[in-house]
Design a protein around this nucleic acid. Structure first.
Length: 173
DNA sequence: AAGAAGATTCGCT
DNA sequence: GCGAATCTTCTTA
């Protein structure tokens, strides 16, 4: 859920990737830095960073205070504020509004100012409640990383047209 | 102090 | 499918 002034933008999370403690591909692997300090805040905080000179990424922290770990939000199924998302994303195509982590952040107008926000509090960005049940959750390898390639730490709602990636194959099935 | 790599996206072929 | 765009951080000299 995202609140900008009087407007609300929201979507169902349909794709995530886990970056657990000790993962060499995770940003917390080499310890706390100025950039990644939000990862160590405790559970349920936002970790936002800028990458490739083009995109912001949004993570939800996932471990107790002092332990760096997070879950990357990779795709949303748009629910509220669709017209606003279309404006932010400069496209009218529903399935392109938040399919991919950089697009998701752009659709919700997320930048560094939201780094460290408590996602379980009354603020500009938070985790809401499910609007409906999730279909079967598929499992696959993570996208765009160069280490720990074999681990099945990407999760997505099977069959959803709002999920990113080449073929949404469920490696586990 | 300089260079390379990075949890990506977009436009063009 | 391929390469450019473009900023921040970490590594190496």
């Amino acid at each position: 859920m995202r609140k900008i002034g009087r407007n609300r933008i929201s979507g169902r999370i349909v794709e995530t990737e886990a970056y657990p403690p000790g993962d060499p591909s995770g940003h917390a692997y080499r310890g706390r830095t100025v950039r990644n300090q939000s990862l160590f805040l405790g559970r349920g905080f936002a970790y936002v960073y800028f990458i490739y000179g083009t995109s912001y990424m949004l993570n939800v922290t996932a471990e107790e205070t002092g332990i760096g770990a997070g879950v990357l939000l990779r795709a949303l199924e748009p629910i509220d504020g669709i017209n606003l998302m279309k404006r932010f994303r400069k496209t009218d195509k529903l399935t392109d509004l938040a399919r991919g982590p950089g697009r998701l952040a752009a659709a919700l107008q997320i930048d560094r100012r939201l780094d460290g926000v408590d996602l379980c509090a009354n603020g500009p960005l938070w985790l809401g409640t499910a609007v409906r049940e999730t279909a079967h959750i598929g499992t696959a390898v993570r996208i765009g990383i160069t280490r720990e390639l074999g681990r099945l730490l990407r999760f997505f709602e099977a069959g959803s047209p709002f999920v990113s990636g080449p073929a949404q194959r469920d490696k586990k099935s």
